[in-house]
Design a protein around this nucleic acid. Sequence first.
DNA 1: AAATAATCCTGCGGGC
DNA 2: TGCCCGCAGGATTATT
Length: 277
Amino acid sequence: MPELPEVEVLTRSIRAYIDGQKCLALDVFNKNLREPVDEPALRNLLIGKTVKSVFRRGKYLCLELPQGHVLVHLGMSGRLLESASATPSLKHTHAVFKFASGYLHFVDPRRFGLIVCTSNRKTGKQSDVSQCKWLKDLGPEPLEGDLKQHLFMSSRTKKQPIKSFLMDASIVVGVGNIYASEALFCAGISPLRPASSLTLQECQRLARCIRKTLQAAIAAGGTTFRDYRGADGLPGYFKRELNVYDRAGEACKKCGNPLVQIRQTGRSTYFCRFCQK
DNA sequence: AAATAATCCTGCGGGC
DNA sequence: TGCCCGCAGGATTATT
C-alpha cells in the first residue's frame, strides 16, 4: 500500500475536499473487502452528517463524524479518488461517497482494503477511537515523539531481523516494505541484523533516517510503485528518489557495487552488502 | 513468547 | 497472441 507517506498525502487532499462538508449519500457496490462492509452502520454514521475532522493514524485514514468514526485502509491496491461524477469510471469501484463538495470513489482491485466504522454510542459514553479494535494495538507514529529511544527499548528482546521489526505495525506504524529498505540503506544498517543487536547510536541513526525518508516521500507526493494514486488520481514522484527499492543488480549510489535482493518473511528486501553492515 | 508461513484477491510483466 | 508463473506497497491467522 500506500505506506505512511502515501496515506498522509491522501489525508491532506481528502481533508481539503470534505472537512466540514455534509455527506449526502453513499453507494456500496461490493461489500466484500478484507472485512464485510457494514452498510447500514456506515449510512447511519454518515448520511446527513457533517465531517468534523479528517486525520491519519498509521496507514488508516480516519473521518470523524458526530457519532463516531469511519476508518479507511487502502490495503495493497486501494485508492480514494475525488470525482465530480457519481458514476464509477474504474473497474473495482466498491463504494462511492457523496459529499456537498463532490464524490469520493473507493477503488481496490485486490480488496485487501477496509472501510469500517466505530460508534460512540454503544457504551453511551464518548469512546476513544484510538482504543477501537483497529487502532488499539498500533505502535507510535514515527514522525512524533522520541523514536530513537522507542526503537532501542522495544528491540532489546527481539532476535528477528531489523527489517521485519521495522515493518511490524505494533512496534512503529507506517513503515512498509519500500521505506524499511530505504531507511536501512540511509542508516547503513544491514536488514539482516537481529533487532536486538542495534546499539543506541545505531537506533539514533535509524530513527533519523526513517523520518528523513518518510518526510522526503511526503514532500514528493508519495511513491507510486504500481498501484498508488493520490486523491487526484495522479501518481507520487518519490520513486525516482528511491536508492535501493526495486533496484536489484543496479549500482549502489554510494559505492557503485551492485545492490542485492533477498527475501525476508516473504517480502523482497533490497540493500547494499558493502554500505550496510 | 517469538518468529515464520499461509492466506485473502486481482493484475501485470516476463518467459516460452 | 496467449498461457503459465511469480510477484506486488498489507495485515491477520495459524503453525512451529
